[in-house]
Design a protein around this nucleic acid. Structure first.
Lengths: 119, 119
DNA sequence: TTTCAACCTGGAGTGCGCTCCAGGTCAAGC
DNA sequence: GCTTGACCTGGAGCGCACTCCAGGTTGAAA
């Protein structure tokens, strides 16, 4: 339940400690809790954001765009339309990316078959 | 037929002129022909290499590894085994990459569906 | 013959996304 | 109380893959 150390958050999200600090520094993460001694405490909610960021990064969204999304979310409910549109645009790019990757993968397999048929 | 200007090679390969020059500078491309005046002339064979590089880059192979492959090819027939292995290893990485991308794409679609169901 | 877009070179600069470092603080276990 | 490992900050540095620039040359078309 709520309350993860930095290294726990790193492990669960797949981001490094430095990356988590970096994300907070540039404002992608905000309002991360602290102990009295100044150490970060990540909540389940923070972890949820990290999972989303993981998804967006893995699908090639630039950090600037994730910042935009996070900013919209912070602005409140009235930005859901824009957030939705942002994700839909991104999904389209990902579809294109998958198609290209698949196509080039097929080329690669063909090349490999050439070597196989070579003996 | 054999004999493409730099800009033609760029158009056909999808690399920029600067990138073609860069690839020659680092030794990825080698023995690119020249006119008496010093301009590059790309052959069909060169174009074939560029198509392969396009495939490898699009599937995320680092340039250093493409250099390695090109170097092996230059060494002659006795390196086909190593070249084959290199491409097979790469293909495996691409398969993993496709799986990850697909998985994260599914997450993304789920998130989008959340916004859709929201009204 | 003149023009001018395409080309040449070497080298510096850019953008992205981290990653590392020094020098210090905190807190759990012995 | 002491040790030790996890954590803190600000800021510098890095790796990759280009991309841009200045200053000069070339060659096809008008």
């Amino acid at each position: 339940m709520s309350g993860y150390s930095p290294s726990e958050a790193a492990t669960r999200s797949g981001f490094s400690l430095d990356t988590l600090r970096y994300y907070e520094k540039i404002g992608l993460l905000s309002d991360i809790g602290r102990t009295s001694g100044g150490r970060r405490v990540f909540t389940d909610d923070d972890l949820g954001w990290l999972v989303l960021f993981r998804c967006l990064r893995d699908t090639g969204m630039p950090i600037a765009e994730m910042c935009r999304y996070a900013e919209l979310a912070r602005e409140g409910e009235h930005t859901t339309g824009e957030r939705h549109a942002l994700l839909r645009r991104h999904a389209e790019r990902v579809e294109e990316q998958v198609r290209l990757l698949q196509r080039q993968y097929d080329h690669l397999r063909e090349k490999i078959r050439y070597y196989e048929q070579l003996g």
